[in-house]
Amino acid sequence: MKSLLFSIFTLAVLLINALLSMRVDPLPYTGGRARDEEERARRNSSSLAAMFGEFRTTLSDVMFIKTERYLHAGVGYAVHHTAMSAEDLAEEVDEHQSELGVHDDHDHHHHDHDHEHIEGLEIDHEHAGTATLIPRADRDFRGPIGRLHREVKPWRDPSKPHAHTDGRELLPWFRVMTMSDPGYIQGYVAGGFWLQTESLDLAISFIEEGLEKNPDDFQLHVSRGLLRVRKARRAGDLNAAVLEPEVRSLLELALADVLRAAELMQRVRPDDVDEDGFGSGGWGRYHESDAMASAHLSVSLTRNLGDHQTAAELARTFLEIFPDSVPLQRAADPENIHHE
């Protein structure tokens, strides 16, 4: 009994110590994922990182996978929703809102994806065929035990389309994963875009929370820019000859976001990015997609705000980074400056 109480006491002291260490100098934990050795060494010298180390980031990854399980109503599939760029996420959330009957009057558009809507569930044919963690009877060596396993756990025949829930119940996991690892950018980005189904302002403030802890992360700036564009779209016509004051103000803020994102992106984007979007230092397709979004949005928002000349100059600058980008080539073409 005494040893049990002592263990509980020790555990409590460790947890309190961990919580206190977040507030104690020197070496506060700053969060974020290190891209270079020096940065990694700095982060790993924090007391919290020393205590929990990789466990923090691993835990966040586990929780991120958990959100996928929640999206599929508990059915465990092999991971197939890989890290998504802010733009892809925005599209994904749109699809869910649309399929579940949550329409945004100003922001509703049709999608070509093979989805249908049944009784509050989004039925996704696109990912049909993705293996389930518990296999089908013909692929399960366990016989009757396998059959019971499929009955007891949430399970769907993997050949059938996936059933997606509305995503609202995912939100606590994004809260917890970013609390446990404030440097988990994907948690903020994905959480922000799911949160917009509730409220754009909530989503923006969540991204801002991420920015407080990771001020130099370009993807968070892109995310906030995209959310502000969405907010502006709800407030009025983005292509009007004379923008309404609220729309203009929101677009200016969004432009500041994406310009800052583009600036930060250029600092961290490696030179060896291949045609699939992968590069050294852990640069992935979703980084590349957000990098391009920062460039495209910088140009298009500048144009929306009426400054066509600057937009063309920006497009020419960004073409040095993304020479194959058709939208940038078009925007840089002097003939298009006053016609688009």
């Binding site: 929640y70 609202r168 119940e169 939100l171 606590p172 996991w173 809260r175 917890v176 949160l195 509730e198 909530l202 969540f206």
Partner: peptide, 13 residues
């Protein structure tokens, strides 16, 4: 006691 963005009705967690 955790506050999930001030939203109510989140029970699965």
């Amino acid at each position: 006691s955790l506050d999930f963005f001030g939203l109510s009705g989140l029970v699965k967690f």
